[in-house]
Design a protein around this nucleic acid. Structure first.
Lengths: 245, 245
DNA sequence: CGAGTCCTTGACCATAATCAAGATATGTGG
DNA sequence: CCACATATCTTGATTATGGTCAAGGACTCG
């Protein structure tokens, strides 16, 4: 039988990337957490249009948020990493209007959607944290929309790669040499950037050739970060403790 | 001297599109509201990169949220209508990373950013409402990202027009005949959809020619709504009371 | 009636999509 | 350990959607 991670032992909380909880908050969240869910790579965590009774938090693994059109065209909205919230839209509005898919095996903390409204009354600080997450996600979407709407293929790649690396670094996923194990294929990149696979491949290859980045067998590493940030027009993110749920 | 609208007389609250406030909430917001601001069309309400001490609520008028690149390319993220919140990102994170510009003359309710954190403790119900707004906005951005990333020009136009009309209708801005006064130029549409002005014009013109929509002198009207929704792959939005701040 | 915005149209061009096929892993069962 | 199957990545050739450049027309407003 699988052991469930207690919130008090939460491996995320122990990384200094996340802000500490008060005793009260910790106890509250422990009670709120209704279970843990394991999903394996390539499976759907939540489905577009479904009115799931759950809200999740990512404990480990990578996922992606995505919307598809009837004929199969698909747009990846963003990538989901440990510490992220899944299903807030469904909790606030009615049903989910996007899907979430696991990129690697994932472990999720499960909460009952019905309990969420109560959180705001019981633990206002946590309510604040939820808004913080929403604001952060909105900012991310803003940046992606600029990429997809107004940037060239090369700029989009630079931006996407920096966004992914920054996010992963912030939660401490990088190796000692700054390299990063990223379970993202070129098809994923294409779908996230509104490009075709072929064009993504050619552009990426060119950038690897110029030494801007390294990309081998799912391991990604920034080559010339300065020049990459220049192409992307993106400043390095100021480090700060992330609020966790 | 200009009269300030009291929250108890808020013209928005009187429309049945918005949910009613409790006595306590009303009193609280009245105290929280630190002023009112008039901005005229074509001026910036908030500027990218600036750390404004204010958060706003739209009382009347249209605006747009936008991000620009160094060389002038710009992407409109979404349009802002009465009842919308401006500046939440700045309140939660550090500075604004997008600008807001007035499309028409606007009246804004002004709140102190420093007070926002306290709202969650004093009026959890309002905190919940803030998250609701964030979730709704995220959903909107998701849909726009799909448009810009994966849709043809014609599909993008159909989707954008439906999104705008739906949003305006929901807050009661439509005329009796279903027509709508929209202060949006084709250049705005182009910037919102990641298209050039020329191509937007041609595509729009074709769609007007087919009777899908009407577009004359800033007044927009749906022609064949069914077919338009078919092109856009968008269901009509279920009506429901919007939480107001 | 002149200045400014906004809309419209034509000609040409470029970025990126599509189609097609082959090369490299990666993994699975015999 | 090999044969086969499946993902993933590469590369070339061709096409198309939409961008850019240019210029003229329509409307509004002092």
């Amino acid at each position: 039988m699988k052991k469930i991670t207690a919130c008090s032992d939460c491996p995320l909380r122990q990384r200094d990337a996340f802000r500490p909880f008060s005793e009260g908050e910790l106890a509250y969240v422990s009670r709120l957490k209704s279970g843990e869910m394991q999903v394996s790579a390539r499976t759907r965590v939540v489905e577009e249009g479904v009115n799931s009774p759950h809200v999740f938090t990512v404990l480990s693994g990578w996922g992606l948020r995505e919307k598809s059109l009837a004929d199969g065209r698909r747009q990846i909205l963003n990538f989901v990493l440990p510490g992220d919230l899944i299903g807030l839209q469904a909790a606030m509005l009615d049903a989910m209007d996007h899907s979430v898919e696991a990129l690697t095996d994932m472990t999720l903390c499960v909460f009952a959607r019905a309990d969420i409204a109560q959180v705001f009354h019981d633990q206002p600080g946590l309510g604040h944290t939820v808004v913080w997450h929403a604001a952060r996600n909105e900012r991310l979407l803003d940046a992606t929309l600029v990429s997809v709407g107004r940037c060239t293929a090369r700029e989009r790649l630079a931006r996407a790669i920096l966004i992914i690396c920054d996010k992963a670094h912030r939660i401490g996923l990088a190796g000692a040499d700054g390299s990063l194990s990223v379970p993202i294929t070129q098809q994923h990149l294409a779908d996230a950037l509104g490009l075709s696979l072929v064009h993504t491949n050619r552009t990426l290859k060119a950038m690897v050739g110029e030494g801007l980045i390294r990309w081998r067998a799912g391991r990604m590493q920034l080559g010339d970060e300065t020049r990459l940030r220049d192409i992307a027009e993106m400043e390095p993110a100021a480090p700060s403790a992330l609020p966790l749920i």
